[in-house]
Protein backbone atom coordinates (compact mmCIF):
# COMPACT_ATOMS: atom_id res chain seq x y z
CA UNK A 1 0.00 0.00 0.00
CA UNK A 2 2.66 2.42 1.04
CA UNK A 3 4.67 1.55 -2.01
CA UNK A 4 1.70 2.32 -4.19
CA UNK A 5 1.04 5.65 -2.59
CA UNK A 6 4.62 6.67 -3.08
CA UNK A 7 4.47 5.65 -6.70
CA UNK A 8 1.34 7.70 -7.24
CA UNK A 9 2.93 10.70 -5.59
CA UNK A 10 6.01 10.33 -7.73
CA UNK A 11 3.85 10.07 -10.81
CA UNK A 12 1.87 13.15 -9.87
CA UNK A 13 5.06 15.05 -9.30
CA UNK A 14 6.43 14.10 -12.68
CA UNK A 15 3.21 14.98 -14.41
CA UNK A 16 2.95 18.35 -12.72
CA UNK A 17 6.55 19.09 -13.62
CA UNK A 18 5.92 18.15 -17.20
CA UNK A 19 2.88 20.37 -17.28
CA UNK A 20 4.80 23.25 -15.81
CA UNK A 21 7.56 22.88 -18.33
CA UNK A 22 5.01 22.61 -21.10
CA UNK A 23 3.41 25.85 -19.89
CA UNK A 24 6.77 27.46 -19.68
CA UNK A 25 7.58 26.42 -23.22
CA UNK A 26 4.27 27.48 -24.66
CA UNK A 27 4.19 30.93 -23.14
CA UNK A 28 6.83 32.55 -25.32
CA UNK A 29 5.62 30.38 -28.22
CA UNK A 30 2.27 32.13 -28.14
CA UNK A 31 3.63 34.84 -30.31
CA UNK A 32 5.73 32.57 -32.47
CA UNK A 33 3.97 31.08 -35.45
CA UNK A 34 3.19 28.20 -35.67
CA UNK A 35 2.17 26.89 -32.28
CA UNK A 36 -1.21 25.37 -33.07
CA UNK A 37 -2.29 22.74 -35.58
CA UNK A 38 -2.51 24.02 -39.13
CA UNK A 39 -5.68 23.13 -41.00
CA UNK A 40 -5.55 22.63 -44.76
CA UNK A 41 -9.01 22.76 -46.33
CA UNK A 42 -9.66 20.96 -49.61
CA UNK A 43 -12.56 21.85 -51.91
CA UNK A 44 -13.11 18.31 -53.19
CA UNK A 45 -13.86 15.10 -51.39
CA UNK A 46 -10.99 12.84 -50.44
CA UNK A 47 -9.20 11.02 -53.23
CA UNK A 48 -9.02 13.67 -55.92
CA UNK A 49 -5.72 15.08 -57.22
CA UNK A 50 -6.07 18.25 -55.14
CA UNK A 51 -6.77 16.23 -52.02
CA UNK A 52 -3.71 14.15 -52.80
CA UNK A 53 -1.52 17.23 -53.01
CA UNK A 54 -2.95 18.62 -49.77
CA UNK A 55 -2.35 15.36 -47.92
CA UNK A 56 1.15 14.89 -49.29
CA UNK A 57 2.14 18.44 -48.36
CA UNK A 58 0.55 18.12 -44.90
CA UNK A 59 2.42 14.91 -44.23
CA UNK A 60 5.80 16.33 -45.26
CA UNK A 61 5.23 19.71 -43.62
CA UNK A 62 4.41 18.33 -40.15
CA UNK A 63 8.02 17.66 -39.05
CA UNK A 64 9.17 20.87 -40.74
CA UNK A 65 6.84 23.23 -38.87
CA UNK A 66 6.70 21.10 -35.73
CA UNK A 67 2.92 21.28 -35.32
CA UNK A 68 0.37 18.87 -36.68
CA UNK A 69 -1.11 19.59 -40.09
CA UNK A 70 -4.70 18.41 -40.55
CA UNK A 71 -6.46 18.00 -43.86
CA UNK A 72 -10.17 18.76 -43.94
CA UNK A 73 -12.45 18.17 -46.91
CA UNK A 74 -15.20 20.69 -47.49
CA UNK A 75 -16.61 19.84 -50.88
CA UNK A 76 -19.57 21.64 -52.40
CA UNK A 77 -20.40 24.10 -55.15
CA UNK A 78 -17.20 23.18 -57.07
CA UNK A 79 -15.18 25.07 -54.49
CA UNK A 80 -17.70 27.66 -53.31
CA UNK A 81 -18.15 26.01 -49.92
CA UNK A 82 -14.42 25.98 -49.26
CA UNK A 83 -13.97 29.56 -50.51
CA UNK A 84 -16.66 30.86 -48.20
CA UNK A 85 -15.05 28.95 -45.35
CA UNK A 86 -11.59 30.36 -46.07
CA UNK A 87 -12.91 33.88 -46.54
CA UNK A 88 -14.45 33.95 -43.07
CA UNK A 89 -11.56 32.17 -41.29
CA UNK A 90 -9.23 34.12 -39.00
CA UNK A 91 -6.17 35.32 -40.97
CA UNK A 92 -3.77 33.80 -38.45
CA UNK A 93 -2.17 31.26 -40.75
CA UNK A 94 -3.83 28.28 -39.11
CA UNK A 95 -6.47 27.87 -41.80
CA UNK A 96 -5.23 27.44 -45.33
CA UNK A 97 -6.97 26.27 -48.47
CA UNK A 98 -5.79 24.35 -51.48
CA UNK A 99 -6.76 26.04 -54.68
CA UNK A 100 -7.04 25.26 -58.37
CA UNK A 101 -8.40 27.20 -61.35
CA UNK A 102 -11.88 26.21 -60.08
CA UNK A 103 -11.73 28.96 -57.48
CA UNK A 104 -10.62 31.51 -60.09
CA UNK A 105 -13.47 30.38 -62.30
CA UNK A 106 -15.89 30.99 -59.44
CA UNK A 107 -14.49 34.47 -58.91
CA UNK A 108 -15.36 35.23 -62.52
CA UNK A 109 -18.67 33.43 -62.55
CA UNK A 110 -20.82 32.14 -59.77
CA UNK A 111 -19.39 34.18 -56.92
CA UNK A 112 -18.57 37.29 -58.95
CA UNK A 113 -20.57 39.51 -56.64
CA UNK A 114 -19.51 37.82 -53.42
CA UNK A 115 -15.69 37.72 -53.51
CA UNK A 116 -12.85 39.55 -55.22
CA UNK A 117 -9.26 38.47 -55.85
CA UNK A 118 -8.18 40.81 -53.08
CA UNK A 119 -10.37 39.04 -50.53
CA UNK A 120 -7.73 36.35 -50.18
CA UNK A 121 -4.02 36.00 -49.51
CA UNK A 122 -2.33 34.04 -52.28
CA UNK A 123 0.39 32.03 -50.62
CA UNK A 124 2.25 29.61 -52.78
CA UNK A 125 2.10 27.54 -55.95
CA UNK A 126 2.63 23.85 -55.33
CA UNK A 127 2.57 22.33 -58.75
CA UNK A 128 1.72 22.82 -62.39
CA UNK A 129 -0.16 20.23 -64.34
CA UNK A 130 0.51 21.24 -67.94
CA UNK A 131 -2.04 20.82 -70.72
CA UNK A 132 -1.25 18.45 -73.56
CA UNK A 133 -2.77 17.44 -76.87
CA UNK A 134 -3.18 13.71 -77.27
CA UNK A 135 -4.45 11.45 -80.08
CA UNK A 136 -5.23 7.77 -80.41
CA UNK A 137 -2.18 5.71 -81.42
CA UNK A 138 -4.05 4.63 -84.55
CA UNK A 139 -4.61 8.25 -85.56
CA UNK A 140 -3.17 9.59 -88.82
CA UNK A 141 -1.68 12.58 -86.99
CA UNK A 142 1.92 12.07 -85.96
CA UNK A 143 2.73 15.67 -85.06
CA UNK A 144 0.90 18.77 -83.94
CA UNK A 145 1.68 20.36 -87.32
CA UNK A 146 -0.08 17.53 -89.16
CA UNK A 147 -3.16 17.96 -86.99
CA UNK A 148 -3.17 21.71 -87.59
CA UNK A 149 -2.62 21.31 -91.35
CA UNK A 150 -5.52 18.91 -91.60
CA UNK A 151 -7.74 21.16 -89.52
CA UNK A 152 -6.84 24.11 -91.76
CA UNK A 153 -7.70 22.18 -94.93
CA UNK A 154 -10.95 20.90 -93.41
CA UNK A 155 -12.35 23.56 -91.13
CA UNK A 156 -14.92 22.26 -88.67
CA UNK A 157 -14.12 18.63 -89.44
CA UNK A 158 -11.90 17.79 -86.47
CA UNK A 159 -13.45 16.96 -83.11
CA UNK A 160 -11.45 17.80 -80.03
CA UNK A 161 -12.61 16.49 -76.69
CA UNK A 162 -11.77 17.78 -73.25
CA UNK A 163 -13.09 18.51 -69.79
CA UNK A 164 -15.66 21.22 -69.53
CA UNK A 165 -17.81 23.49 -71.62
CA UNK A 166 -16.65 26.64 -73.38
CA UNK A 167 -14.61 28.73 -70.97
CA UNK A 168 -13.41 25.82 -68.83
CA UNK A 169 -9.65 25.50 -68.25
CA UNK A 170 -9.09 22.83 -70.89
CA UNK A 171 -11.22 24.66 -73.42
CA UNK A 172 -9.29 27.90 -72.95
CA UNK A 173 -6.02 25.98 -73.28
CA UNK A 174 -7.16 24.52 -76.57
CA UNK A 175 -8.43 27.90 -77.75
CA UNK A 176 -5.06 29.51 -77.04
CA UNK A 177 -3.44 26.95 -79.37
CA UNK A 178 -6.21 27.08 -81.99
CA UNK A 179 -6.08 30.87 -81.98
CA UNK A 180 -2.34 30.85 -82.68
CA UNK A 181 -2.61 28.16 -85.34
CA UNK A 182 -5.63 29.83 -86.91
CA UNK A 183 -7.80 26.75 -86.94
CA UNK A 184 -11.42 26.06 -86.13
CA UNK A 185 -12.51 22.73 -84.74
CA UNK A 186 -15.52 21.30 -82.92
CA UNK A 187 -14.98 21.37 -79.18
CA UNK A 188 -16.69 18.33 -77.64
CA UNK A 189 -17.17 18.80 -73.90
CA UNK A 190 -16.87 15.98 -71.39
CA UNK A 191 -17.72 15.83 -67.69
CA UNK A 192 -14.18 15.08 -66.58
CA UNK A 193 -10.71 14.78 -68.00
CA UNK A 194 -11.02 11.02 -67.50
CA UNK A 195 -14.17 10.92 -69.65
CA UNK A 196 -12.35 12.74 -72.42
CA UNK A 197 -9.51 10.21 -72.23
CA UNK A 198 -12.07 7.41 -72.45
CA UNK A 199 -13.49 9.05 -75.57
CA UNK A 200 -10.10 9.30 -77.26
CA UNK A 201 -9.34 5.68 -76.36
CA UNK A 202 -12.61 4.65 -78.01
CA UNK A 203 -11.88 6.86 -81.02
CA UNK A 204 -14.99 8.97 -80.55
CA UNK A 205 -13.03 12.20 -80.98
CA UNK A 206 -9.99 12.98 -83.15
CA UNK A 207 -7.87 14.56 -80.45
CA UNK A 208 -8.18 15.43 -76.78
CA UNK A 209 -6.89 18.15 -74.53
CA UNK A 210 -5.68 16.51 -71.35
CA UNK A 211 -3.02 16.38 -68.64
CA UNK A 212 0.05 14.11 -68.53
CA UNK A 213 -0.96 12.11 -65.45
CA UNK A 214 -4.26 11.16 -67.03
CA UNK A 215 -2.72 9.53 -70.08
CA UNK A 216 0.74 8.36 -68.95
CA UNK A 217 -0.16 4.67 -68.74
CA UNK A 218 -1.87 4.67 -72.10
CA UNK A 219 1.19 6.26 -73.65
CA UNK A 220 3.30 3.53 -72.07
CA UNK A 221 1.05 0.81 -73.51
CA UNK A 222 1.13 2.60 -76.88
CA UNK A 223 -2.61 3.20 -77.03
CA UNK A 224 -2.33 6.98 -77.10
CA UNK A 225 0.18 9.42 -78.55
CA UNK A 226 1.01 12.83 -77.12
CA UNK A 227 1.56 15.51 -79.77
CA UNK A 228 2.65 18.45 -77.66
CA UNK A 229 2.97 19.90 -74.17
CA UNK A 230 1.82 23.40 -73.27
CA UNK A 231 4.88 24.34 -71.24
CA UNK A 232 8.21 26.09 -71.60
CA UNK A 233 10.25 22.94 -71.27
CA UNK A 234 9.76 19.32 -72.20
CA UNK A 235 8.59 16.92 -69.50
CA UNK A 236 11.29 14.79 -67.90
CA UNK A 237 9.24 11.61 -68.43
CA UNK A 238 8.63 12.27 -72.11
CA UNK A 239 11.83 13.67 -73.60
CA UNK A 240 10.55 13.07 -77.16
CA UNK A 241 7.37 15.09 -76.82
CA UNK A 242 7.88 18.67 -78.04
CA UNK A 243 6.47 21.76 -76.39
CA UNK A 244 3.93 23.76 -78.39
CA UNK A 245 6.67 26.24 -79.20
CA UNK A 246 9.00 23.57 -80.49
CA UNK A 247 6.15 22.13 -82.53
CA UNK A 248 5.81 25.47 -84.24
CA UNK A 249 3.24 27.30 -82.15
CA UNK A 250 4.68 29.95 -79.92
CA UNK A 251 1.82 30.40 -77.47
CA UNK A 252 1.69 32.01 -74.06
CA UNK A 253 2.29 29.05 -71.76
CA UNK A 254 1.36 30.79 -68.54
CA UNK A 255 -2.10 29.24 -68.79
CA UNK A 256 -1.92 25.97 -66.92
CA UNK A 257 -3.78 23.71 -64.60
CA UNK A 258 -2.18 24.52 -61.26
CA UNK A 259 -2.62 23.78 -57.60
CA UNK A 260 -1.54 26.09 -54.83
CA UNK A 261 -2.38 27.41 -51.39
CA UNK A 262 -4.32 30.44 -50.25
CA UNK A 263 -5.75 31.93 -47.12
CA UNK A 264 -8.08 34.69 -45.94
CA UNK A 265 -7.08 38.29 -46.61
CA UNK A 266 -5.01 40.22 -44.12
CA UNK A 267 -2.57 37.53 -43.05
CA UNK A 268 0.43 39.07 -41.22
CA UNK A 269 3.56 39.31 -43.34
CA UNK A 270 5.77 37.27 -41.03
CA UNK A 271 3.23 34.42 -41.04
CA UNK A 272 3.15 34.47 -44.83
CA UNK A 273 6.92 34.45 -44.87
CA UNK A 274 7.16 31.53 -42.46
CA UNK A 275 4.60 29.53 -44.38
CA UNK A 276 6.47 30.20 -47.60
CA UNK A 277 9.73 29.04 -46.06
CA UNK A 278 8.10 25.87 -44.82
CA UNK A 279 6.41 25.16 -48.15
CA UNK A 280 9.63 25.80 -50.05
CA UNK A 281 11.31 23.22 -47.84
CA UNK A 282 8.44 20.82 -48.54
CA UNK A 283 8.79 21.29 -52.29
CA UNK A 284 12.50 20.54 -52.06
CA UNK A 285 12.09 17.16 -50.32
CA UNK A 286 12.67 13.95 -52.25
CA UNK A 287 9.30 12.71 -51.14
CA UNK A 288 7.49 15.63 -52.75
CA UNK A 289 9.57 15.30 -55.90
CA UNK A 290 8.74 11.63 -56.07
CA UNK A 291 5.04 12.41 -55.70
CA UNK A 292 5.29 14.94 -58.53
CA UNK A 293 6.97 12.50 -60.86
CA UNK A 294 4.61 9.57 -60.15
CA UNK A 295 1.66 11.81 -60.84
CA UNK A 296 3.39 13.46 -63.82
CA UNK A 297 3.22 17.04 -62.60
CA UNK A 298 5.69 19.89 -62.89
CA UNK A 299 7.03 21.61 -59.79
CA UNK A 300 5.39 24.95 -59.02
CA UNK A 301 7.61 26.52 -56.39
CA UNK A 302 6.32 30.09 -56.47
CA UNK A 303 6.35 32.14 -53.31
CA UNK A 304 3.65 34.59 -52.26
CA UNK A 305 4.53 37.62 -54.32
CA UNK A 306 5.22 35.79 -57.54
CA UNK A 307 2.16 33.63 -56.97
CA UNK A 308 -0.11 36.62 -56.53
CA UNK A 309 1.12 37.98 -59.86
CA UNK A 310 0.59 34.57 -61.41
CA UNK A 311 -2.98 34.49 -60.09
CA UNK A 312 -3.64 37.96 -61.47
CA UNK A 313 -2.37 36.88 -64.85
CA UNK A 314 -4.55 33.75 -64.84
CA UNK A 315 -7.47 35.96 -63.90
CA UNK A 316 -6.84 38.30 -66.82
CA UNK A 317 -6.61 35.40 -69.27
CA UNK A 318 -9.84 33.95 -67.91
CA UNK A 319 -11.63 37.30 -68.24
CA UNK A 320 -10.29 37.75 -71.79
CA UNK A 321 -11.49 34.37 -72.95
CA UNK A 322 -14.83 34.66 -71.20
CA UNK A 323 -15.34 37.78 -73.28
CA UNK A 324 -14.09 36.22 -76.51
CA UNK A 325 -16.27 33.18 -76.03
CA UNK A 326 -19.30 35.29 -75.20
CA UNK A 327 -19.78 33.91 -71.70
CA UNK A 328 -19.48 37.28 -69.97
CA UNK A 329 -19.60 40.83 -71.22
Amino acid sequence: MKMNKRLILCGLLIISMLMLSACGASKPAEKVYPSEPIKIVIHTSAGGPTDLMGRTVAQIMEPIVGVSCVVENRPGGSGATQMAYIAQAAPDGYTLGCMTPSQLGLLNGNLKDQFKLTDFTWLSLGQIDPYIVVVNAKSQFKTLQELVDYAKANPGKINVGGYGSAGAGHNIAWNILADKAGIKVNWTPYESTGDAVTAILGNHVDAANSNPGQVAQFVETKELRVLGVMANTRLAEWPDVPTYKEAGFDVDTSWAQFRGFYGPKGMPEDVVKKLNEALTKVYATDKYKEYLSTSQMMPGGMAAKEYAEFINKQDTITKDWYKKLGISK
Binding site: G156, A166, N186, L325
Partner: peptide, 9 residues
Protein backbone atom coordinates in the same frame (compact mmCIF):
# COMPACT_ATOMS: atom_id res chain seq x y z
CA UNK B 1 -30.35 31.99 -74.19
CA UNK B 2 -27.54 32.54 -76.66
CA UNK B 3 -27.47 30.73 -80.04
CA UNK B 4 -25.31 27.61 -80.53
CA UNK B 5 -21.56 28.15 -80.75
CA UNK B 6 -21.19 26.36 -84.06
CA UNK B 7 -23.73 25.24 -86.59
CA UNK B 8 -23.55 21.55 -85.75
CA UNK B 9 -24.48 22.09 -82.10
Amino acid sequence: LPPPMNQSD
